[in-house]
Simulated scan of single mutants.
Amino acid sequence: MSTRVTVNGEAREVEASEDTPLLTVLRDELGLVGSRFGCGQGLCGACFVLLDGVAVPSCQTPLSQVAVSDGVVTVEGLSEGGTPHPVQAALLEGQAAQCGFCISGIVVRAAALLATTPSPTGEQVAEALERNLCRCGVQRRIIDAVVAAGSTP
């Protein structure tokens, strides 16, 4: 079945059933591999994308939900004209990423936070990223980087 979706500002036609998880469509049909498969239950945050500006687990979001939305933004779609999103830049500057497995979901979730709370506190960042599982132990650096991104004019 052909479904029209908007991903990173571009309208695309994909061949998949309505109940196919968005993560599968992004990775296998569209070649956007920034979102990762982690737990498959929407709990770890590795697969988060923005759907109508809200961070959602793409492993649990069916294609049918995306087809009626204004669009999806993946970690690849956050940068503008080759300029990293402020969260991406702050994470690099603060050397806050280790293995990289969870970081795309964290970037997406942090970008959603900054869209609603432009200058969050460390506590607000920690609360927003609560569902994102990072096993490398760099949570403090991630929180500091997101706070710094919010402080960037």
Rank of each mutant, 00 (worst) to 15 (best):
S2W: 11
R4E: 13
V5Q: 06
V5T: 08
V5S: 06
T6N: 10
T6D: 09
V7P: 02
A11I: 14
A11C: 13
E13R: 14
E13Q: 15
V14D: 08
E15W: 15
E15L: 13
A16P: 07
A16F: 13
S17N: 14
S17R: 15
T20Q: 08
P21L: 00
L23H: 01
T24V: 14
T24F: 13
V25S: 03
L26K: 06
L26Y: 08
E29R: 15
E29G: 06
V33D: 12
V33H: 10
G34S: 11
G34N: 04
S35L: 01
R36P: 00
G38Q: 00
C39G: 04
G42P: 01
G42N: 00
G42Q: 00
C44W: 04
C44N: 06
A46W: 04
A46F: 04
C47K: 03
F48P: 03
V49M: 05
V49L: 01
L50G: 08
L51N: 07
D52M: 12
V54F: 10
V54H: 13
P57F: 01
P57M: 00
C59L: 05
Q60T: 14
Q60R: 14
Q60I: 05
L63W: 06
Q65G: 07
S69M: 07
G71R: 08
V72G: 02
V72H: 06
V75K: 01
V75R: 01
G81A: 01
G82A: 01
T83F: 01
P84W: 01
P84T: 07
P86M: 09
Q88L: 05
Q88P: 02
L92R: 15
E93L: 13
G94W: 02
G94N: 15
Q95Y: 12
Q95K: 15
Q98Y: 07
C99K: 09
C99G: 09
G100T: 08
S104K: 05
S104N: 14
G105H: 01
G105N: 00
I106C: 09
V108Y: 01
V108L: 05
A111V: 08
L113P: 05
L113W: 11
T116F: 08
S119A: 11
P120L: 07
T121G: 04
G122C: 04
G122P: 05
E123K: 13
Q124N: 03
V125M: 04
V125A: 06
A128K: 15
A128C: 12
R131M: 12
N132V: 11
L133T: 03
C134K: 02
R135H: 00
R135Y: 04
G137K: 05
R140L: 12
R141N: 13
R141H: 11
I143C: 07
I143W: 03
I143S: 05
D144E: 15
A145H: 11
A145W: 11
A148V: 13
A149F: 10
G150F: 09
G150H: 10
S151D: 12
P153S: 13
P153W: 09
